[in-house]
Amino acid sequence: MGNRTMGYRSRRLIAALAAVALSWLPQSALAWGSYGHRTTAAIAMDNVSPATRKAIARLLAKSAELGTPDCPVHSLEDAAVWPDCVRKYSWRYGYTFAWHYQTEPICEEYSARKNCSGGNCVSAQITRNERILADESLPDAVRLQALIFLVHFVGDIHQPLHSGDHEDRGGNDVQAEYGIVPGLNLHWIWDGPMAERAISSAQPSLVRHYSAAEKAALGGGTPADWGRESWQVARDFAYRTAFGRDACAAGAAPLPKDAALTQEVIAESVPVIQKRIEQAGIRMAQSLDKAFAPGPLPETPRG
């Protein structure tokens, strides 16, 4: 009876954990999920200049002009999840779906120009929307949408698997277990449960005012640099820990289509994710300060 009881309890525990994991499903392929995106935006708001904070508030006051009442934008945190929320309006925003990522062959030399035809990739859209946001001659509604896309895409490009392998769609085609929870995929795990664990366990909180030294260490670079960093984390860490081997070793077999992330791998991943979220938040703040700063407009994006 005891063994049967323990077996029943184990099955119930697995079912409960699976149910929790499934609660992340609507956000799973949307880069960091809602919690991660809101966290990066909250970090940014705690680290922008007072003038930038005031300018953001002025644009957010125009949010009714977006015409998306089911996806309200009352704060920068709301703005950070809006581009995922409006996926339900595919007839209006389907053209933006390719802007969220830039997968690359992880065993070839990285190039920010690959898989970015016509600027339809995350690195190009960060540059484009920063330029639009900075242009005070444009209508507020246009600049507000640029603000929204900018904060979302800065978050997206820091999720390593948004620069993951092109062949498996950044881990979406890799079936994976998260500890004892089966039936997930590698991309989803990085977006949802591992990101949530990294954020909720951080000491001190990731959402805070960072010192000048911390900003110098975490900030800087261009969108192409940020994409390259994510690609390298995906190649050297995410895939290596998922499969237990160097994904690009000479003579290595093709990457498998299934993986299992042990508790040890999950714990090892936490500081990696924490750093990427901190970098996203600080760089977002710097990008916003740059866009709202007086002076000449940022360089026009490449074609």
Score class of each variant (00 low, 15 high):
residue 164 G to L: 02
residue 80 A to K: 08
residue 276 R to F: 06
residue 269 S to R: 08
residue 130 E to W: 00
residue 235 R to D: 04
residue 114 K to F: 07
residue 50 P to T: 05
residue 272 V to M: 14
residue 249 A to P: 02
residue 94 G to K: 04
residue 166 H to D: 13
residue 199 I to S: 10
residue 40 T to Q: 14
residue 302 R to F: 08
residue 5 T to I: 14
residue 62 K to G: 08
residue 214 E to S: 03
residue 82 W to Y: 10
residue 110 Y to N: 00
residue 45 M to V: 10
residue 40 T to M: 12
residue 130 E to M: 09
residue 158 H to C: 09
residue 62 K to T: 14
residue 213 A to W: 02
residue 40 T to C: 12
residue 94 G to N: 05
residue 281 G to Q: 09
residue 52 T to L: 07
residue 197 R to F: 14
residue 284 M to T: 15
residue 277 I to Y: 12
residue 86 V to H: 04
residue 177 E to D: 15
residue 23 S to N: 07
residue 87 R to W: 07
residue 286 Q to I: 06
residue 109 E to S: 11
residue 115 N to Q: 08
residue 71 C to R: 05
residue 227 G to T: 01
residue 239 Y to G: 03
residue 270 V to T: 12
residue 223 P to T: 02
residue 26 P to W: 01
residue 30 L to G: 14
residue 206 L to I: 12
residue 40 T to L: 12
residue 152 H to L: 02
residue 39 T to A: 11
residue 245 R to G: 06
residue 56 I to E: 02
residue 67 G to V: 05
residue 18 A to S: 15
residue 215 K to M: 13
residue 136 E to K: 13
residue 74 H to K: 15
residue 291 A to G: 01
residue 127 T to L: 09
residue 259 A to N: 02
residue 163 S to P: 00
residue 165 D to F: 00
residue 221 G to M: 00
residue 159 Q to E: 15
residue 163 S to E: 14
residue 22 L to V: 09
residue 12 R to K: 13
residue 233 V to F: 01
residue 73 V to P: 07
residue 230 S to Y: 02
residue 235 R to L: 08
residue 199 I to V: 15
residue 158 H to D: 05
residue 99 W to L: 10
residue 232 Q to L: 10
residue 266 I to H: 08
